[in-house]
């Protein structure tokens, strides 16, 4: 997809999102959904950049998200650091954590990266619940219950006032999305394409797979950590429940629906997944049942997710329009 087209889709998406509060500002229920869509869209985008684009088979995305959330929560609760700074610090910490995880495993073949990153994910649960986690202020199994809201220019941003928080999230989302787009379309992006096509040939041209993978890993971890931290200050409480397979699966569904490696696709995937999950909520246990079936069908029949057929239909409309003129 060309840079222009990608930007147009994203721009259209965020413009529409931006005017949403005009209609729904008073309905907390929908505002909450919109905020979660924004947060998930970025987290899933990061995963898409890692998996679909850089070809790193990482299962650690949720772990990074949780590390960011806990880091900011602990910093602001235990050390009284203002949330604005603690969120930035959480991003940096998560980025470093990403490098730490990436160093041993990014040289390995695909499935082994999945093994190590998923092992990190699973280790976080007993770590945060156990005595070690309690020692650094994770609150053990009950988690952290009193995370302060973000204060900026004398305004408090939290789940109490959803509209301001929505715009805060939106602006952060736009910045991070631009960064991700730049990465995809920059020299890095080209390097990855070369690596994906032929790693040996790319290496002979002096492209170091490891270096680029580590850089992308660090960057996406940073962004993911940032949004994890944002989420922590949004809901005001955290527990290790975030590491359950639920979140992992939901993120995975977003990618499947959006199409892996079809970049803005995953953003649409996030919108559809969150909406669908909400719509199906009254069905109770049939909700996950249907979601599961959707994933199976999509993987089998829509290999590039839902965005490619949509684009095809839309461009055929455009063509019809042009022909009529």
């Amino acid at each position: 997809m060309s840079l222009k087209r990608m930007l147009r889709i994203l721009c259209g998406f965020y413009c529409v999102m931006g005017i949403m509060p005009l209609f729904f500002g008073g309905t907390d229920y929908i505002m909450n959904i919109l905020i979660m869509i924004l947060i998930w869209a970025v987290v899933a985008s990061c995963w898409d950049v890692i998996m679909g684009f850089a070809g790193i088979f990482s299962f650690g995305q949720v772990a990074f998200y949780v590390v960011g959330a806990y880091a900011s929560a602990i910093l602001s609760v235990s050390l009284d650091i203002p949330p604005v700074f603690s969120i930035m610090m959480a991003g940096v910490i998560t980025g470093l954590f990403g490098v730490l995880v990436g160093l041993p495993c990014l040289r390995l073949a695909g499935p082994y990266v999945a093994l190590v990153t998923f092992a990190v994910h699973m280790t976080l649960v007993p770590f945060l619940r156990g005595p070690l986690g309690r020692a650094i202020g994770s609150g053990g199994s009950q988690g952290i219950l009193t995370i302060p809201p973000i204060e900026l220019f004398g305004l408090a941003f939290s789940s109490e006032q959803l509209v301001p928080f929505f715009y805060l999230t939106l602006s952060l989302t736009i910045i991070c999305t631009l960064v991700l787009v730049l990465v995809i379309k920059s020299y890095w992006g080209t390097a990855f394409l070369a690596l994906k096509d032929s790693e040996n040939f790319a290496a002979s041209l002096g492209i170091s797979a490891f270096k680029y993978k580590l850089m992308v890993f660090a960057l996406t971890s940073f962004i993911t950590g940032l949004f994890g931290a944002l989420y922590a200050h949004y809901v005001g409480m955290l527990s290790t429940k975030m590491l359950s397979m639920d979140v992992f699966t939901i993120l995975m569904i977003m990618m499947v629906i959006g199409g892996i490696g079809k970049y803005p696709g995953v953003v649409v995937g996030a919108v559809i997944t969150v909406t669908l999950s909400q719509l199906l909520a009254p069905l109770g246990m049939y909700r996950p049942l249907i979601m599961g079936a959707i994933v199976v069908v999509l993987v089998l029949f829509l290999r590039d997710g839902i965005i490619s057929p949509i684009i095809r239909i839309l461009s055929s409309w455009q063509r019809v329009g042009v022909e009529e003129e």
Binding site: C11, P264, V268, T275
Partner: peptide, 20 residues
């Protein structure tokens, strides 16, 4: 091309509002 995003959002809205 921004129709894609637009469509998704309209879809969301329609579904969310009709349930109430």
């Amino acid at each position: 091309m921004r129709k894609t995003g637009l469509l998704a959002i309209i879809f969301t809205l329609v579904m969310l509002t009709t349930t109430s």
